[in-house]
């Protein structure tokens, strides 16, 4: 590992990722272990996110650690104007590890520079959310048996969706083929296409969400198409129903296909997909618990069998 904090998924090498996937698998077999006995961990949520916080706090609790922290900035000293630096230095005096979420981009990187204990970035604005990426990777690994040579289709908001950008970068170690399905206004940004070219990763862009694309896919990664992302609301009205997955569209898909979504969903996956065994988004969220347990132990240097 490049540093002892996890700020960006790029802080992990391919070997780190493989090691974490094995650890996550082991935690899934037995998530209740007292390896954090005597440790205190802070969850500092300057920006509220109940879903992510509960996942982290469950991970710590099942490992026997104790938690201090706050769930939104209004109850923290930053509401009195204290700088992030001062808050992080103060808290790092008390705890063994800090898990933080912040609305400003780069907040976690800066915190990792001033903290005396490791930092886990639980989301910094539109920038990075590496534990989401780890749970995505674990979900892919678990359902496909490998991360190598997969055909991955990303659908929806590929412009602002930080989860798809991080997943794209993390998958670059594993020889993937990408299909990007998005409306014109929300296409995959140029920098990530250049990234693919530099890494010899084939990618194909589509504005139609067709069964032809779905049928060659191993992983179908759905994202929300949000109204507020559009400058042209006519365009939104035109495309909002184009990127919806319905159960009938999966009829000719590969048996190993799985549908992933970072959640919460709005309407981009029809409810009739939920009962299809290829729908994997709820298990995916559960996998976050094991992926986070693995990351916490890795950063604290705790070996698990």
């Amino acid at each position: 590992m490049k540093c002892d904090s996890l700020v960006s998924i790029n802080d992990f090498s391919k070997e780190d990722i493989m090691d974490l996937l094995e650890k996550a698998r082991s935690f899934e077999e037995n998530p209740n272990r007292k390896v954090l006995d005597g440790k205190v961990i802070a969850t500092l949520f300057f920006e509220p996110s109940t879903r992510t916080r509960l996942s982290f706090e469950t991970a710590v609790n099942r490992l026997g650690g104790r938690i201090i922290g706050f769930s939104d900035a209004a109850t923290s000293s930053s509401s009195k104007g204290e700088s992030l630096k001062d808050t992080i230095i103060m808290v790092s005096n008390y705890v063994d590890l800090i898990i933080m979420r912040h609305h400003l981009e780069g907040a976690a990187r800066y915190a990792s520079e001033v903290s005396s204990v490791p930092i886990i970035n639980a989301g910094d604005g539109a920038n990075q959310h590496p534990t989401q990426t780890m749970l995505d990777l674990y979900s892919i690994y678990k359902t496909q048996g490998t991360l190598e040579n997969l055909n991955i289709t990303m659908v929806g908001d590929l412009k602002y969706g930080r989860t798809v950008h991080s997943l794209l970068q993390a998958m670059s170690h594993f020889n993937p083929t990408f299909h990007f399905v998005a409306p014109d206004e929300l296409k995959m940004p140029q920098e990530y296409k250049i990234f693919c070219e530099e890494h010899n990763i084939p990618y194909y862009e589509h504005s139609d969400f067709s069964e032809e694309v779905i049928n060659q896919t191993d992983i179908l990664y759905m994202t929300r198409v949000q109204r507020e992302r559009f400058t042209d609301l006519m365009e939104y009205e035109r495309v909002k129903d184009v990127y919806i997955l319905r159960n009938s569209m999966l009829a000719g898909s590969k048996p190993n296909l799985r549908v992933l979504h970072p959640l919460p969903r709005v309407n981009e996956i029809a409810y009739d997909v939920d009962d299809n065994p290829k729908a994997y988004y709820f298990q995916q969220a559960k996998n976050g618990l094991y992926a986070r347990q693995a990351i916490i132990c890795k950063l604290l240097g705790i070996d698990v069998e």
């Binding site: 700088s83 992030l84 630096k85 912040h102 609305h103 400003l104 981009e105 780069g106 907040a107 990187r109 800066y110 910094d124 604005g125 539109a126």
Partner: peptide, 11 residues
């Protein structure tokens, strides 16, 4: 980037 931490902290 106005949302960058470097524009919002004394750093």
């Amino acid at each position: 980037n106005p949302k960058c931490i470097s524009n919002n902290e004394p750093m």
